[in-house]
Amino acid sequence: MDRIETEASGGCQCGAVRYHVTAVLDTSHICHCRMCQKAAGNFFIALIGVPRDAITWTRGAPATFKSSDKAARGFCRNCGTPLTYDYAGSKHINLTTGSFDDPSAFPPQVQFGTEGQLSLFEDLPIKAEGTTEEVMSDLVGAIKASNHQHPDHDTDRWPA
């Protein structure tokens, strides 16, 4: 695993937990295993390794759930956003790629846990059906007007 020096921040949906990283590993991936599906509440989870010395929790800290004797999952205790996968004894921690302010900076390079992969994801990429505005046009205005989600950048305090 190669260490890549970078500057990136991220955090949970409500802003109670924020982090900053100064390096990542070249391990950006998605995992289809059933445990990751359950942890993400989704078809798969996207993760990237971060050396332990390269992460700083800048606001709050994740709560954890020991998903096995060897691993713990970190999440925001307020909003439930999945944030980490931490394998006991590893020199790095995995952060959920979607929790970065700019997740496009870390595109997945490989897939794991394919024993749990749903057949509809065998031929990624998936056809796009349209933007949120196009698909949910009747709700977009109300959602934007009542949005409680933290913005995709660091703030001095939250809520504003």
Score class of each variant (00 low, 15 high):
139 L>G: 00
95 L>N: 09
83 L>K: 08
20 H>A: 13
153 H>Y: 12
118 L>M: 14
125 P>H: 11
157 R>K: 08
129 E>P: 01
119 S>M: 13
1 M>I: 11
135 V>L: 15
144 K>I: 05
26 D>M: 06
158 W>E: 09
38 K>T: 05
19 Y>A: 05
12 C>D: 02
159 P>C: 09
46 A>S: 15
72 A>L: 04
38 K>H: 08
122 E>F: 12
84 T>R: 08
40 A>W: 04
18 R>Q: 11
4 I>H: 01
69 D>Q: 08
31 C>T: 07
45 I>V: 15
89 G>K: 04
86 D>G: 02
21 V>G: 06
104 S>V: 09
131 T>K: 10
153 H>L: 09
32 H>I: 05
57 W>F: 14
3 R>V: 10
123 D>S: 15
68 S>V: 05
133 E>N: 04
137 S>I: 00
111 Q>M: 14
116 G>P: 03
137 S>W: 11
139 L>W: 12
145 A>Q: 10
9 S>C: 13
63 A>I: 09
118 L>I: 09
96 T>S: 07
78 N>M: 08
21 V>D: 07
101 D>C: 10
48 I>K: 05
35 M>I: 12
126 I>E: 11
136 M>S: 04
41 G>Y: 14
32 H>Y: 13
21 V>C: 08
56 T>C: 02
119 S>W: 07
122 E>S: 12
135 V>H: 02
28 S>I: 02
68 S>E: 03
66 K>P: 10
60 G>L: 14
10 G>Y: 00
127 K>L: 10
18 R>W: 00
120 L>H: 09
68 S>G: 01
106 F>L: 03
109 Q>R: 15
135 V>S: 11
73 R>E: 00
137 S>D: 15
22 T>M: 02
66 K>M: 14
109 Q>M: 14
128 A>C: 04
7 E>T: 13
37 Q>E: 07
22 T>N: 06
17 V>F: 07
138 D>A: 13
51 P>F: 03
71 A>H: 07
104 S>N: 09
95 L>E: 05
38 K>Y: 00
11 G>M: 11
98 G>H: 01
41 G>I: 10
58 T>A: 05
97 T>N: 06
65 F>K: 13
13 Q>Y: 15
98 G>A: 12
96 T>V: 03
6 T>C: 06
115 E>V: 13
35 M>N: 13
15 G>A: 06
19 Y>G: 09
32 H>S: 03
29 H>M: 07
22 T>L: 03
101 D>P: 02
17 V>D: 06
4 I>Y: 00
64 T>G: 07
58 T>R: 01
29 H>L: 11
17 V>M: 05
128 A>D: 14
52 R>C: 12
10 G>A: 03
41 G>M: 11
151 P>N: 05
96 T>R: 03
159 P>K: 08
154 D>C: 07
141 G>C: 11
57 W>E: 02
154 D>E: 13
57 W>L: 09
74 G>F: 09
14 C>S: 04
49 G>P: 11
84 T>H: 01
5 E>T: 15
155 T>A: 14
79 C>N: 02
